[in-house]
């Protein structure tokens, strides 16, 4: 699929959100769309998926079957999980039996089995997001577009997303994914598209692609200053949580196996906890009061 000189703005006299985007993604490729809030990542993904039509330029060779996972699943609908997914499967062209089979399979795989008869508005944000993921995969897509797919998902499903992406790639599908939480470190082979000022540039691989996630515990009163300092030093702060002791124990299973030398916090949590990534793990040492590093 190729975006050829794509320009887009939301209103006739509004500013151009995308300006002359020219990019191609081939079968079996995955690209991560990166950029600050509001730069047009979701807009770019929606153009690629066919939701938005470019004001200028065109999208060519888009696969016939596209799966799109929006940033926020529209849960305000009067259907149960099963009825909604069955309806979407039928809309996607599956027969009754195939639709039932696909719904059963995906609800089982995404941990939605217990919610099959629950109405969509009653679902939690994360569970609704799983329904959004399921609807995009009911028929194997030639292009899978994931807009912040990790948002609100539990640990097990966060681990599952790269697996699902790999399955699409394995059958020569293409995948576009946006992320601002740093979860895309789980996709080491992905191309990295950076959106800024309406333009897109592709980040080339650095000589050292190793990224480490370091957990830091700081007194609550120092959180803002620490986060600001870390960001100023070029680190990416993934999240800040209030209770380090429980959060650490919850967060550990979602992380890949640690490399040798990884250390658990040596001191009890002091207040707030967060994670940061650093291109050069050792550079964060002076900011880490108790850290666990890992290589991905």
């Amino acid at each position: 699929m190729r975006l050829e000189n794509v320009w887009l703005r939301y209103h006739r006299r509004g500013p151009w959100v995308l300006q002359g985007i020219d990019v191609r993604i081939g079968p079996g490729e995955v690209a991560i769309v990166l950029g600050r809030n509001g730069v047009g990542k979701s807009t770019l993904l929606q153009v690629a998926a066919g939701v938005l039509r470019p004001g200028r330029g065109r999208v060519t060779d888009r696969p016939a079957r596209v799966g799109w996972v929006p940033e926020r699943f529209p849960a305000d609908q009067p259907f149960t999980v099963t009825r909604y997914l069955t309806g979407m499967a039928r809309v996607a062209g599956l027969g009754r039996a195939a639709a039932d089979e696909a719904v059963t399979s995906w609800t089982d795989r995404l941990g939605l089995a217990a919610f099959r008869s629950v109405r969509l508005p009653e679902l939690s944000k994360g569970t609704a997001q799983k329904v959004g993921l399921a609807q995009a995969l009911l028929r194997p897509p030639g292009l899978l577009v994931l807009d912040e797919p990790w948002e609100g998902l539990d640990a097990a499903t966060r681990e599952l997303v790269p697996e699902l992406i790999a399955e699409v790639l394995a059958v020569d599908g293409s995948v576009l994914v946006s992320d601002h939480r740093g979860e895309t470190v789980r996709l080491p082979a992905a191309r990295r598209w950076l959106v800024a000022d309406g333009s897109l540039s592709e980040e080339t691989s650095s000589t050292d692609e190793t990224i480490a996630v370091v957990e830091v515990a700081v007194p609550a009163a120092r959180v803002a200053g620490t986060v600001a300092r870390l960001r100023a030093e070029g680190h990416q702060v993934l999240r800040v949580r209030s209770d380090a002791s429980t959060a650490v124990s919850q967060a550990l299973p979602v992380e890949p196996p640690r490399s040798a030398g990884a250390a658990r916090p040596a001191e009890p949590p002091l207040g707030m906890a967060g994670e940061l990534t650093a291109e050069q793990p050792e550079a964060a040492d002076d900011a880490v009061e108790s850290a666990a590093g890992e290589t991905r």
Partner: peptide
């Protein structure tokens, strides 16, 4: 009645 995002999902699935 249909949420905007659901309408877009339908559009992606069946075409404009």
């Amino acid at each position: 009645v249909e949420p905007d995002v659901q309408r877009r999902l339908a559009q992606v699935t069946v075409g404009v």
